[in-house]
């Protein structure tokens, strides 16, 4: 384990994770709204927002999958030291982090069981940037219509087709985060 793995966590976990959770909760409750997350400085290539989400939500009880470039020693050590989360294959993950291409095929991830739809994965999708320009979204949390820069539409349309099963997403870029729960209907463009 490198000394860098020991740094970059929360300095005041109870308060910082409380603020981070509220931002994440707002993001998932109001899809397409963009919020900022602060308090962690994770190693490359993890974004600040994704790092804060992991510190806030993951621990020894939540298996994490690192996809593509994110599956690197620096990040493995950082997550192991700060969260103690077991690092696992995609199929077993409660949380998965990586770029959209690296997370493919997303059909690998847990979508919950018909009697326990909550037992589904949460994907943290690392984006080059996050903006309000993109496909039109409708559904719970959205007053009418909203728009958000998504990596694609088809996968999210397919995911909505599984409702109440399906995975849930946070999209992260730098310190920004947006939520995309499985309940959101993405319009094909």
């Amino acid at each position: 384990m490198t000394p860098e793995a020991l740094t970059g966590g929360f300095a005041d976990a109870p308060v910082q994770s409380a603020h981070a959770f509220r931002a994440a909760l707002e993001a998932l409750s109001r899809p397409a709204t963009i919020h900022s997350l602060h308090g962690a400085t994770p190693p490359e290539p993890l974004s600040v927002a994704a790092g804060v989400l992991i510190l806030t939500l993951c621990d020894a009880t939540t298996p994490v999958h690192l996809a593509g470039d994110h599956d690197c020693p620096a990040l493995r050590d950082w997550i192991t030291f700060h969260c103690g989360a077991p690092l696992v294959a995609a199929q077993e993950a409660s949380f998965a982090v990586g770029r959209w291409e690296a997370l493919q095929p997303v059909a690998r991830f847990a979508i919950g069981q018909p009697d326990y739809p909550d037992r589904a994965a949460t994907l943290i999708v690392e984006m080059p940037e996050l903006s309000s320009e993109g496909p039109r979204l409708r559904g719970p949390g959205i007053d009418g219509i909203a728009t958000l820069s998504l990596p694609e539409s088809a996968a999210f349309i397919a995911n909505r087709g599984l409702f109440p099963l399906g995975f849930d997403c946070f999209l992260t870029a730098g310190a920004s985060v947006a939520g995309l729960p499985r309940s959101t209907r993405v319009e094909d463009v």
Partner: peptide, 28 residues
Amino acid sequence: FAYLDEQTKRMIRRAILKGVAVPGYQVP
């Protein structure tokens, strides 16, 4: 802060997020 230990809060927070994702479904 807010009485509960951090591990318990994380567990509850994860349940809240899943509840938000599946409106009306009762998350254990």
